[in-house]
Simulated assay, not measured.
Amino acid sequence: MTDHIRQQALTLWEYHHLNHSLTKADAILVLCSHDLRVAQRGAELFLEGWAPLLIFSGGLGVITRHMWSEPEAELFARIALDMGVPAQQILIENQSSNTGENVLFTKQLLEQHQLEIERFIVVQKPYMERRSFATFKKVWPGKDVLVTSPQDSFDTYLSQYTNPALTPDDVISIMVGDLQRIQLYPEKGFQIPQPIPTEVWAAYEALIQAGYDRHLATS
């Protein structure tokens, strides 16, 4: 990776972060994916006492359906159990295949359990904080939500990535695709709008020119 590419990718990385300061919540909602570090972050927050309920949401998505045979949420929940989270404090939603479904199906799950949750801490990959927030506020308006992620720097995240099936270049391509979705999805009704600064869009276009376009939405 050249210094120029790294700088453009870092611009996107920083934009995707919301840098929310955490406060105690009613539930921690972990949006599952290919990144097992997210499961660890969710479990750590529970064990630190940020909320009394830990929810894992995720079936098999675009990436993980080619990697695993079991739902993401089941795998993530086992990680939390191994870290000491009591089973009775965990809820699992294992049918969703995208971020919007993560939120919608979790809403339905909580309704089935007759649980009224007003304040959430959402845990997601570092480069999906902003899109997760925008999606949550569209699908479930009126709830308080803070978003966090594994507390790694950009370089540390890429060098210590927990899934060897994805290279640093793959991660950058995913970040590019997520920025495109932030721009496109409000018109489709999937997310609330998010401002995209000129320098962030310029970095996005530079990365596409450099070939980081493998995870762009096709429609």
Score class of each variant (00 low, 15 high):
His20Asp: 15
Ile174Pro: 09
Ser33Tyr: 05
Ile208Asn: 09
Ala217Tyr: 06
Thr198Phe: 14
Val176Trp: 01
Tyr212Gly: 03
Ile182Asn: 06
Phe56Glu: 00
Pro150Gly: 08
Val171Arg: 08
Arg214Val: 03
Phe120Thr: 01
Ala27Thr: 01
Pro195Cys: 09
Gln89Ile: 00
Arg181Val: 10
Trp140Asn: 12
Asn94Cys: 05
Asp144Trp: 14
Leu91Val: 00
Asn94Gln: 12
Ile182Gln: 07
Pro168Gly: 09
Tyr15Met: 03
Leu54Phe: 04
Ile92Trp: 03
His17Asp: 01
Pro52Ala: 04
Glu199Val: 11
Leu81Ala: 07
Thr148Asp: 06
Gln108Ile: 04
Glu74Lys: 07
Leu12Met: 09
Leu29Gln: 02
Ser159Leu: 11
Gln114Asn: 14
Gln160Glu: 14
Glu129Thr: 03
Glu116Met: 03
Arg214Cys: 08
Leu158Ser: 14
Thr135Cys: 15
Gln95Pro: 00
Glu72Trp: 08
Gln7Met: 13
Gly84Tyr: 03
Thr2Arg: 11
Val62Ser: 14
Ala77Asp: 01
His17Val: 03
Ser153His: 04
Leu10Ser: 09
Arg119Phe: 05
Ala39Ser: 13
Glu48Trp: 04
Ser173Phe: 09
Glu72Tyr: 08
Ala210Gln: 14
His20Arg: 00
Leu53Arg: 00
Gln88Val: 00
Gln112Ser: 11
Gly100Thr: 02
Ile63Gly: 09
Arg37Ala: 15
Arg181Ala: 13
Phe136Gly: 05
Ser173Gly: 15
Ile63Thr: 13
Leu10Met: 12
Glu205His: 04
Thr162Trp: 09
Leu158Pro: 11
Asn98Gly: 09
Ile92Phe: 06
Val200Thr: 15
Thr198Gly: 08
Thr218Asn: 11
Gln40Thr: 14
Thr135Asp: 10
Val103Leu: 13
Leu29Ala: 02
Gln124Asp: 05
Arg119Gln: 06
His113Ser: 01
Asn19Thr: 02
Lys188Cys: 03
Arg37Ile: 06
Gly100Asn: 10
Ser33Gln: 05
Pro141Leu: 13
Glu44Pro: 07
Gln89Glu: 13
Thr218Lys: 15
Val145Asn: 03
Ala51Val: 01
Glu48Thr: 09
His215Met: 13
Val200Gln: 10
Tyr185Trp: 12
Leu36Trp: 05
Thr218Gly: 02
Val123Ala: 05
Cys32Asn: 07
